[in-house]
Design a protein around this nucleic acid. Structure first.
Length: 1039
RNA sequence: GGGCCAUUAGCUCAGUUGGUUAGAGCGCACCCCUGAUAAGGGUGAGGUCCGGUGUUCGAGUCACCGAUGGCCCA
């Protein structure tokens, strides 16, 4: 180092101190785990939600009601799917509020039902029988209340705003009271009836079981082939080949044969009639299963008859049916092997096919029950019939099988309306045959003994074609582990037929988002059977019906319902269990038969009925707050097409003759990062609380906004990592603006639009474009478009372009320089426009930023004074003044040129780094480079020069030392780094020439400018910086 | 087993009525900056559009078959 340099070094002014660098208290690091709860506390303390909604309501704003579907209170923690749902709802209500609507959100909870009851029962010392129904219900209520608190804490931590002080819960006394009223209304309108339906039944525990209470385990069953003789009188013309034939069925529950009321075939399968030559019998089975049936017949024939003996000998030459071989097991195997080898020849000669017939042509033929005299059963067609095992003909006993029941119901409600199949369930609660079995040997016997007896009877009647034991998976009671059965019991139903068309009409009226939801629910409503609403449980709302002790006639009327309503409002539905029928009924209650003694119905209502009537028990009951149905929106997971959407729609049509919603939005399920379902066993469960504690709720919310929720969505470490990056980008973008707005007084420093530069105007235009895009994205519930647009804007337009260019001016220009104030004007505009748009997705972040904005800088956002919370601020309107920008095309051409030039300069710099000669200069900064742009005169094309921007502005925009435009001549690129490009603005082709600036570096702004060195008092800085430094009130500090 | 849905770069998403060489941001690699600094800028590499067959002059886009995954039902 020379002594001269040394001297100047010592006296060098620390120009950094003279710069106007960003200043803000807003931290780069979020510290969300502690900061977010503070913000939520602030919202709570300030009652922001209530104030905001109250204002809207008072001003008579149009309402937008999103009615909450109640999550089930089985746990005190929420899972990621619930978080997705709640966040989506919150984004919607917050946005709708911002758009000027009164958009209250009343969170709800579903508190009755089996899972809670079972969880509570499990915890009781001494088991279920140790406590009374009333005590059990109290425990269930407590359990639900505890879980409600837990879930509520989770939901609030997500940043969801709503009426947390007055949520609704289906176990609320008033709700329960309203529910029995609703039941009565439906009963009055004749939608409710009592009928038989098979349910899982444990004869050991003498109780009905829900599907969830059944475990599958191996069980050895008797499997039998049985023949049903076709009723010749039912044959249609052309079906003579079926005369005297027998339909063969296969079943693993012989004891249900007495309950057989029909046979089912598949409409599309091919069936065939074949003859067994030995006895001349004709059988009908599915073609594909014929061989299996024949195999069985052969064995049976071998067992019972001697007539096959000669054939056997003929086939094997050795093996006979007599006991010759010393090893019996070996012998049996040999016989079987011989049999197998005979099947094929037997198939062709001994069992010739007589005719083939399609399943649907068998429909409505009749067959005789094998041993119940006078019972003729019809053949039905159904797609539940399979060819996996059996004969392709299914023994159908609607009292003992779910599919059997469903198919019979379909026929009874349709083609067989006038001559219904009905249901026979000849087994009582203990599993003992009743006289409905119509067979003396069975009556009084337990069903488990029934198999043996039925087989014996079938043998006697000659209807048994085969019998063996099989091991298969069979349902067992989860409590006593005994096998369970399906048993038809009396249940309460809601008739769907009466409102089906009306419901379908309402489905059409509603808007389904995405659209395919409409077809999904419509097909379900079209095809569904009646709704069984009774459950044989304790934790729920009772079916409010009494029965006369004398004549068993049910009792429910206006009076009994009103009395119960009043009582339930006071004491909750617990009163039903706490009080006797006499106490529940008024003294003068008398049955038509004259009796005054009554019993209570013991069943409760399906929880889907509870939640299904929230349109009445919540929306209508809180009319002042929520208005009337239909509400604007229901928003739930796509599984609710079968669940809540349907139960709500059906009950609403019955009670109000209309759908409870105008629109229904559905979202998919949350899968792990690989698209797999989350499960404990796979260990891929993502806990929303963990994400919130680590990264904050806004990151989780940002995730919700980032994915296309209309299909299944994924979340995993990589995805979260990416979201954190985007969150930081948005945060830092806002922080940069906040810092550079220091010292900016919007009232006095705002520059008029006309004074703004092209880049300024362009940026404001782009900002408005974002407003327009985000508004459209939210109006169409396309939140992932919001995420993409917002991210792009922050990265591309702001960070990479505007901020990067603006930094020089913001930091180095004199504080009040017009172009600096102009840029602050732009920053202020962008900042205050963006901030409210962050609210729906990232309310904590928005609030945090707002709290770091200087009070005097806070805009009023349409209020008399700046809002306490940014979440109260309205959504920005499209500002036409800024949006309209006619020079966009031209400016974008200049930008394209900028990126071309920057690319060239970058390459130039890289090349300079690879130089080996010491005399060549290594370029450290782009600001050292001089870019000369020239047109290439080619093919006689005239170069165009329409760049309407002064040299200084171009240099600022291109971030280089100097820009020279030279369109007059074809540049000679030899010896320079050159680059050719295409740009409609500049010409068909143009060249960019890069060279090293001969000017000195300004020690203050680091630009290489001609003016550096021309000022005696500050020899190291440029003209602009000299001006800025001279303007400063005191001497710049010296290091 | 049935109904519905999804599959485009490592990730999240675009991709009009079928029409040039399939795009964006992030991430990644490399480079720069150290005056947004646990920040910022630049350059670049990434695609068998799930697979197959068909329709068409032409298919990411339309039709059919299949695979994988998901929801609902059985």
């Amino acid at each position: 180092m020379t002594s001269a340099e040394n001297t100047s070094e010592n006296s060098k002014i620390n120009y950094k101190e003279t710069l106007l660098l960003p200043e803000t208290t807003f931290k780069m690091k979020a510290g969300a785990a502690t900061r977010e709860p503070e913000i939520e506390q602030f919202w709570d303390d300030q009652q922001i939600y209530f104030k905001a909604q109250e204002q809207r309501k008072a001003s008579g704003a149009e309402k937008f009601i999103l009615h909450d579907g109640p999550p089930y209170l089985s746990s005190d923690k929420i899972h990621i799917g619930t978080a997705l749902n709640k966040i989506l709802k919150d984004i919607v209500t917050r946005y709708q509020y911002q758009r000027g609507h009164y958009a209250p959100y009343v969170p709800g909870y579903d508190g009755h039902g089996l899972p809670i009851e079972n969880a509570v029962v499990k915890s009781i010392k001494g088991g279920r029988k140790a406590i009374s129904d009333v005590e059990l219900r109290q425990k269930c209520r407590d359990f639900g209340a505890k879980n409600l608190k837990g879930q509520e804490t989770n939901f609030k931590r997500l940043g969801v705003w709503g009426d947390w002080e007055h949520p609704y819960i289906t176990t609320d006394p008033k709700f329960e009271a309203t529910q029995i009223k609703a039941f009565y209304e439906m009963h009055k309108k004749d939608y409710v009836y009592k009928g038989l339906k098979p349910v899982y039944w444990c004869s050991h525990c003498e109780t009905a079981l829900a599907d969830a209470e059944v475990e599958y385990d191996n069980h050895t069953s008797d499997s039998i082939y049985v023949k049903f003789a076709i009723d010749n009188s039912s044959l249609k013309p052309g079906q003579e080949m079926l005369k005297d034939a027998s339909v063969v069925i296969w079943t693993t529950t012989p004891w249900t044969i007495p309950a057989n009321l029909a046979l089912s075939v598949h409409p599309e399968y091919e069936y065939e009639v074949f003859e067994e030559k030995i006895s001349g019998q004709k059988y009908l089975v599915a073609s594909e299963l014929k061989e299996q049936v024949i195999e069985c017949l052969v064995k049976e024939l071998a067992k019972i008859g001697k007539q096959l003996e000669p054939t056997l000998e003929g086939a094997s030459g050795k093996v006979t049916a007599s006991n010759e071989a010393p090893n019996k097991g070996m012998k049996l195997l040999n016989i079987q092997a011989a049999m197998m080898s005979m099947i094929k020849p037997l198939n062709e000669s001994t069992f010739p096919t007589l005719a083939k017939i399609k399943g649907k042509d068998l429909e409505f033929l009749n067959a005789h029950h094998p041993f119940i005299n006078d019972r003729v059963v019809p053949i039905l067609t159904g797609r539940h019939v399979t060819l996996e095992a059996g004969t392709g003909v299914v023994h159908t006993a609607p009292g003992h099988g779910m599919e059997d029941y469903v198919i019979c119901q379909q026929y009874d409600n349709g083609p067989l309306k006038n001559n219904p199949i009905g249901i026979v369930s000849p087994v009582d609660a203990k599993g003992v045959f009743t006289d409905k079995a119509q067979e003396p040997r069975l009556i009084g016997q337990h069903y488990s003994k029934g198999n043996e007896i039925v087989i014996e009877i079938l043998k006697e009647k000659g209807a048994l074609l085969g019998h063996r034991k099989i091991d298969h998976s069979y349902p067992h009671c989860w409590r006593c582990h005994q096998p369970v059965i399906y048993r038809a019991t009396e249940q309460w139903f809601i008739s769907i037929d009466k409102i089906r068309n009306e419901a379908l009409g309402e489905i059409k009226q509603a808007k389904w988002i995405p659209e395919r939801g409409e077809a999904r629910i419509a097909s379900m409503v079209e095809g569904r059977g009646d709704w069984c609403i009774s459950r044989q449980r304790v934790w729920g709302v009772p079916i409010p019906v009494f029965y006369c002790k004398a004549c068993d006639k049910p009792l429910i009327n206006e009076k009994t319902t009103e009395d119960l309503y009043d009582l339930f409002c006071k004491e909750s539905s617990d009163a039903w269990w706490a009080k006797s029928a006499a106490e529940l009924l008024s003294d003068d209650t008398t049955c038509a038969c004259g009796s005054k003694e009554f019993t209570k119905e013991t069943d409760i209502m399906d929880v889907w009925f509870d939640s299904g009537i929230t349109h009445t028990a919540v929306v209508e009951a809180r009319k002042d707050e929520l208005g009337e149905i239909p509400v604007e929106l229901y928003l739930e997971g796509s599984d609710q097409h079968r669940g809540w959407f349907q139960s709500s729609l059906l009950t609403s049509v019955m009670l109000h003759q209309k759908a409870p919603f105008k629109s229904v939005l559905t979202h998919g399920f949350v899968l792990d990062g690989n698209g797999r379902k989350m499960s404990k066993s796979l260990g891929n469960v993502i806990d929303p609380n963990k994400i919130m504690n680590q990264y904050g709720a806004d990151v989780l919310r940002l995730w919700v906004a980032s994915v296309d929720y209309s299909v299944d969505v994924r979340i995993g470490d990589e995805i979260i990592k990416q979201l954190v990056e985007v969150y930081k980008k948005v945060r830092n973008t806002m922080r940069f603006m906040l810092g550079n707005l220091a010292g900016f007084d919007p009232d006095s420093h705002t520059e008029p639009y006309e004074n703004l530069s092209d880049l300024d105007k362009y940026t404001l235009h782009r900002m408005q474009e974002v407003v327009s895009k985000l508004t459209e994205a939210f109006d169409h519930y396309q939140f992932h478009h919001y995420y993409q647009v917002l991210q792009n804007f922050c990265v591309t337009e702001l960070s990479s372009l505007y901020f990067d260019v603006a930094k020089d001016v913001l930091y180095c220009d004199p504080e009040n320089a017009p172009r600096r104030r102009a840029m602050q004007t732009v920053l202020y505009e962008v900042f205050t426009t963006m901030l409210p748009m962050l609210v729906p997705v990232a309310p904590h972040l928005a609030e945090d930023i707002w709290s770091h904005l200087q009070e005097e800088q806070k805009p009023n956002y349409g209020f008399d004074m700046p809002p306490v919370s940014i979440t109260m601020a309205p959504w920005p309107e499209l500002n036409q003044k800024y949006y309209k920008y006619d020079e966009r095309e031209q400016f974008e051409a200049i930008l394209a040129l900028k990126y071309d030039v920057n690319r060239s300069m970058e390459r130039f710099k890289e090349i300079s780094y690879n130089l080996t000669s010491a005399s060549d200069k290594k370029i450290e900064q782009l600001t050292e480079i001089v870019a000369t742009i020239g047109a290439v005169v080619q093919n006689g094309l005239e170069p165009i020069n329409r760049i309407d921007m002064n040299k200084t502005d171009l240099e600022m925009l291109f971030l280089c030392s100097e820009v020279n435009l030279n369109f007059e001549e074809d540049l000679d690129l030899s010896g320079y780094f050159g680059h050719y490009g295409n740009n409609s603005l500049v010409g068909e082709q143009y060249s960019i020439k890069c060279s090293v600036s001969s000017y000195s570096k300004c020690e203050r702004c680091w630009n290489y400018r001609e003016s550096v060195g021309t000022f005696a008092d500050h020899p190291d800085i440029c003209e602009r910086c000299h001006g800025a430094v001279s303007e400063m009130p005191r001497e710049a500090p010296v290091t």
